[in-house]
Design a binder for these strands. Structure first.
Lengths: 112, 112
DNA sequence: GTAATATACAACCAAATGGTTGTATATGAG
DNA sequence: CTCATATACAACCATTTGGTTGTATATTAC
């Protein structure tokens, strides 16, 4: 399995993009079904341009893509990027798990 | 298993805190071993106060805790909060998985 | 062809972020 | 006791963020 590593800057963008409730909601909805920017904009209490900017931030992070369909732009969630973020968090957890494991080994050696 | 739900604002803080390479490095190191703020500050090309602020951001997000030990503050990574963020990302992936499953069902019904 | 809809994008602004320096306090070493 | 170390925290500043309005362009509907 080939995994394309994200640069630190890309990782920053991904987490930064996820650090906003509106953007997380956009990701949820675009993973769930086909939806245009207008559809999205109708749901939030802010201007169309503001929603457009949120979508742009998500797109720059690789969390969504825009697909042209007539005059509309369908926003499509990108599960691969989400999985990438998950894996990064898993690697952090793994560091801790290994520390606990080292500690257990130490305690076991103390007992002998 | 009791899971304490994070508020939207807390989730924002967690992802915001993770959206910086220095802070991710601090999390890694504090999960790996006992380390003080001074130890951390020695490794980065910025002032002690700047590192202090990064630790404060991580602490506000629940990603680390500070434990007093003499005049030092030991910074301890908090794996539970990381796991929480992971679960949130998993729930997003799950939305997509279910959509694919729905699509499969639809295609299967088309075939009959 | 004209009007309405969907999007793009620039300019602007207030607030938040990420750094700095400076000062104060608490603890440890000699 | 005195000095050095570790931390806390405030004030300041440049840049980024997250919203706004306004204007332009492309596509669809009638």
């Amino acid at each position: 399995m080939v995994v394309y590593e994200l640069s630190e800057e890309q990782v920053n963008k991904v987490f930064r993009a996820l650090a906003d409730a509106t953007r997380r909601d956009i990701v949820r909805r675009t993973l769930h079904a086909e939806i245009s920017i207008s559809d999205l904009a109708a749901s939030y209490d802010m201007s169309f341009a503001a929603v457009q900017k949120h979508v742009a931030a998500l797109e720059a992070a690789g969390l969504v893509r825009k697909i042209a369909r007539g005059r509309e732009r369908i926003v499509r969630g990108q599960p691969d990027t989400i999985r990438h973020a998950q894996e990064l968090l898993s690697s952090l957890e793994e560091i801790w798990r290994q520390r606990i494991s080292r500690l257990d080994d130490f305690l076991a050696s103390e007992d002998t």
